[in-house]
Design a protein around this nucleic acid. Structure first.
Length: 899
RNA sequence: GGGCGCUUAGCUCAGUUGGUUCAGAGCACCUGCCUUACAAGCAGGGGGUCACAGGUUCGAAUCCUGUAGCGCCCACCA
């Protein structure tokens, strides 16, 4: 191991000195790597980031959570395998490549498919892996030997196999459907890739001439440019206003084309003018109407969103320019009756933010309804568990209304569709892995000799998600060889960590694919974390400049501090309101841990430090029994939090155990009396034992600092690294609740005394006489046994606990539970301050007593509530009365000191 | 338009089957301290009508109904 024992430790912990060192060491020693063996596996597949992406805050959160889960599982003895990798991200990467080429003055259209793909690979090789490199800085303990890429050969072959199998079973079909067209990327999109936004639009009322009518008919539309592709006017069959028009003929303005006026009860007579223009090629509803009424379909849009030749003199104009020109022309012709401002929903491309055009198009689809069945059931039955559970509702709603998935994209970067056409048109095709296979199949199918010249492969590629939905299987080779040792060992994976926004894109589809191909869920748990936002709840974005650079954060606060910061305020399912102050808190915590270590280190004999002692606390040592019990309590509570995927709560518990219990109380108690004097060896061994456990509990959250410290305190005969050491065993039988209570009494009395010190403006060095009058003999004994603890925590000159004591004159006093505390302060006591302190306490006690009595004076309560509850109230009343009496006595003695 | 969820301290959030001082934690804030591990620290302190209005109950932050505000998901009303 690279560390050498240092003599002098710096006061401040410096992560830059330790983090790279330990990461390299872990990796070189193969601690991240997994091979199937006889142990129970624990596997996680990374949500593969875009291969050309860089690390952002979302990745930081996502991977921190995964690493915490993975590291804990590893410490629990599971054969832990976290598979990293990247996604080719078809449309996103292609857009980036196109942009980069454009910057170099190259247009995509000038390149052949092969040339473009070469550029994309170049970009991928240049960029790919940057993000994975960055994840190492965060401490992610991925099995890098297993790094996969969705476009690598094996995974690509798996995608083809998947397509072939789904096609063979009739799930995949090719069809002419209304799809979402992105004119920017010039491709079809799935429904999920369309984001509906509320926008202010104009609803134009446009008058069409009607044959045989002077008035014409007025329709309302938000997309006036589409009138050029109108093939009907539609009214409601029962609308008396238009009954005379139905069956007539209208004339499309500007185009002069004659179209029928039809009646269909799809029309809402209340909306707009009650009269609808029908454009079957550019609107889903219109398309449906068109089918019912056998209407002509006129496509007036080019792929890039400009108007096609059908648009006559508007041809070539962009759709939005055309809208303006058409409105102007309609105005000139006096056909624009009215313009109404409305708010409506417009679909935008998730990737390019272009306004989506509904378009009739020949595409490949995957039938989803049957696939969805088992996937829905498994989540409802809890075979796949969602954390938090509320996302089950969202999931169910989507799955119950699932629609076919448009899987073809008119892009070049991606998995090519394995369809081969051999006829003149697009009608005749075969599905095949290779041209050779295609020729064979085509020859067979066509009953004639098909040669290489006769076939051509489908130009389209598959939706990116058509490869990522196989990810948990393909990373283990489970599609190519469903019986291989790896997939059988690691599948189903255990936990998937992701954001709810890709539940439909990815999670749901992985579950469907998992059941379809393996009859088994791809993972057992899905942990949904929120979006990382800034402290004002704004989404992090480049343009707002509110997104910190993750690597700068790591540099500034350390990976440990940053990780802790990310987790502090990140309950599962909630958005993370990121504030660098959280990372600062994390860094401060690192420093606190470091200084606790420094304290122990200073007490260690450099040559021969004791081994951490984990044996049960010796009887009669209140402080040892207490801290040991607190640690056991915390282990149990943290395990419960982990079971419920409440990582932030587990972190908060260990944070508080380390900072509050261990540092603020335990260390103070075990300090030697004399400065410079080392604490006894046995005590140090116990302290190291506790601390070593704390370090192990902290490791999943803060891996670097804990490894650094552990290497210096761990007994030589254990594992060589913290990362593969054991998660602390839980011994609930070691929890001594009485010890905790006893120590809490000490803490409360100590705080009460410190409060007096503060309120009386006493110097914390001023020595005090402490007189305690506990409620009974048992407490008296306990407190007397704890004298040494008080002496560590307070400047005690004399301390006596006596349940028969009486109050001396001129003292400050306090009540702690039923124990009275007096501090004689003759000559020092400020009676005025003491009076106000006691008066405040009396007010509190009276308020409390009042509420208890009110409850008890309610006959209904006494009669109906369970006896135990009533008895508890009576006890409260008795205690409060007694306390109040004592406080009043104290007050009267302040006013009449002679008594 | 349909569905789901949220509203507790200045901020972010816990609060399980209704009952123990249940009104909590962290951060922030105020006061005092460089006390022999740590000022990236120590000690002490203030702060909330649990969104609002009803109801059920001996008893409600907790269960029910309604209202208001906010958020998310889905959806083909031009």
């Amino acid at each position: 191991m690279p560390n050498s024992r240092q003599r002098e430790l710096p006061k401040q912990y410096d992560p830059s000195k330790t983090e790279p060192k330990w990461y390299r060491w872990w990796e070189e020693n193969g601690f991240f790597h997994s091979e199937p063996d006889e142990r129970e596996p624990y596997s996680v597949v990374i949500p593969p980031p875009n291969v050309t992406g860089v690390l952002h805050m979302g990745h930081m959160l996502n991977n921190t959570i995964q690493d915490v889960l993975v590291r804990r599982a590893r410490m629990m003895g599971r054969n832990t395998c976290w598979v990293p990798g990247t996604d080719h991200a078809s449309i996103a990467t292609e857009a980036k490549v196109v942009r980069r080429l454009r910057e170099r003055g190259i247009s995509k259209a000038d390149l052949s498919r092969e040339e473009f793909i070469d550029h994309a690979w170049e970009w991928t090789e240049e960029h790919g892996g940057i993000i994975l490199q960055q994840l190492r800085k965060l401490g992610a303990s991925c099995d890098w030997e297993r790094t996969r890429f969705t476009m690598e050969e094996e995974l690509s072959e798996s995608v083809t196999e998947c397509f072939i199998e789904l096609h063979r079973q009739g799930y995949i079909y090719r069809g002419l459907r209304m799809i979402n067209w992105d004119p920017e990327a010039k491709t079809a999109l799935s429904d999920e890739e369309v984001i509906h936004k509320d926008v202010q639009s104009n609803l134009y009322h446009i008058r069409y001439d009607v044959k045989g009518s002077d008035s014409g008919i007025v329709i309302a539309t938000t997309r006036p440019e589409t009138i050029l592709a109108d093939t009907a006017i539609c009214v409601h069959p029962d609308d008396p206003r238009f009954s005379e028009f139905a069956g007539g003929t209208a004339v499309v303005p500007l185009a002069g084309r004659e179209i029928p006026i039809i009646a269909d009860d799809y029309v809402d007579p209340e909306y707009g003018t009650g009269c609808l223009k029908v454009t079957p090629a550019h609107d889903v509803n219109d398309y449906e109407i068109g089918l019912r009424h056998n209407l002509e379909v006129i496509d007036m849009l080019n792929a890039d969103g400009t108007l096609s030749g059908v648009a006559g003199r508007f041809a070539g104009q962009d759709r939005f320019d055309a809208r303006k020109s058409i409105i102007k022309d309609l105005k000139d012709e006096d056909r624009l009756e009215h313009t109404e401002e409305i708010s409506n929903k417009v679909g935008y491309s998730e990737r390019t933010d272009a306004v989506i055009e509904p378009r009739l198009s020949l595409q490949w689809f995957c039938r989803m309804e049957k696939l969805a069945g088992p996937a829905l059931k498994s989540v409802m039955d809890g075979e796949v568990m969602f954390h938090p559970e509320k996302f089950k509702n969202t999931y169910r709603h989507w799955m119950e209304n699932i629609r076919d998935w448009c899987i073809s994209r008119q892009l070049w970067w991606g998995h090519r569709i394995p369809a081969w056409y051999y006829g003149d048109g697009d009608e005749e095709y075969v599905i095949a892995r290779t041209p050779k296979e295609a020729i064979g199949l085509a020859t067979e199918k066509a009953g004639r000799n098909i040669t290489e010249e006769d076939i051509h492969q489908d130009e389209d590629v598959l939706d990116t998600w058509f490869s990522s939905w196989l990810w948990p299987m393909t990373v283990f080779g489970g599609l190519k060889d469903p019986e291989n040792r790896e997939i059988r060992y690691y599948y189903p994976t255990n936990d998937l960590v992701t954001a709810p926004e890709i539940m439909f894109f990815w999670v749901a589809r992985m579950i469907m694919a998992g059941y379809f191909f393996r009859g088994q869920q791809p993972f057992s748990n899905v942990y949904y974390h929120g979006i990382v936002r800034d402290s004002q709840r704004r989404k992090m974005s480049k343009s707002l400049g509110n997104s910190p650079d993750p690597l700068e954060l790591i540099e500034k606060y350390g990976a440990d501090g940053t990780r802790a910061g990310m987790l502090f305020s990140s309950p599962a399912g909630n958005d993370l309101l990121f504030d660098p102050a959280l990372c600062e808190q994390g860094r401060n915590f690192s420093n606190k841990i470091w200084n606790a270590f420094r304290f122990l280190h200073m007490n260690m004999d450099g040559q021969n430090p004791p081994a951490p002692d984990h044996s049960p606390p010796p009887s009669g040592d209140a402080a040892e029994a207490w801290i040991d019990s607190r640690i056991e309590q915390t282990i149990a509570a943290m395990n419960e939090d982990f079971d419920r995927y409440r990582l932030n709560e587990a972190l908060q518990k260990i944070y508080s155990l380390v900072w509050d219990d261990f540092c603020d109380w335990y260390i103070e108690v075990i300090k030697s009396d004399q400065p410079g004097e080392k604490i006894p060896r046995e005590r140090l061994a116990r302290a190291l034992g506790h601390f070593e456990k704390l370090v192990r509990l902290l490791h999943p959250f803060m891996p670097f600092i804990t490894e650094e410290i552990w290497q210096q305190i761990a007994p030589r005969n254990t594992k060589e690294a913290l990362i593969i050491s054991d998660w602390p065993a839980n011994n609930p039988d070691r929890i001594d609740k009485e010890a905790i209570r006893r120590f809490r009494d000490v803490q409360q009395i100590t705080s009460a005394i410190r409060n007096i010190q503060a309120e009386m403006s006493l110097s914390p060095k001023k020595e005090l006489t402490l007189l305690l009058r506990p409620q009974d003999k048992q407490r008296e004994t306990e407190l007397n046994e704890m004298k040494w603890v008080f002496r560590k925590l307070l400047p005690v000159a004399r301390l006596a606990a006596d349940c028969n004591a009486s109050k001396p004159p001129a003292c400050a006093s306090a009540m702690i539970g039923q124990t009275e505390l007096w501090i004689p302060l003759e000559g020092i006591i400020d009676l005025e301050r003491e009076r106000s302190r006691i008066t405040k306490e009396i007010e509190n006690a009276e308020g409390f007593l009042h509420s208890v009595r009110k409850k008890l004076s309610n006959r209904q309560f006494v009669e109906n509530a369970p006896d135990a509850v009533v008895e508890r109230e009576r006890q409260k009343e008795r205690d409060a009365e007694s306390n109040l009496g004592k406080l009043k006595m104290t007050l009267s003695e302040i006013d009449h000191p002679s008594s």
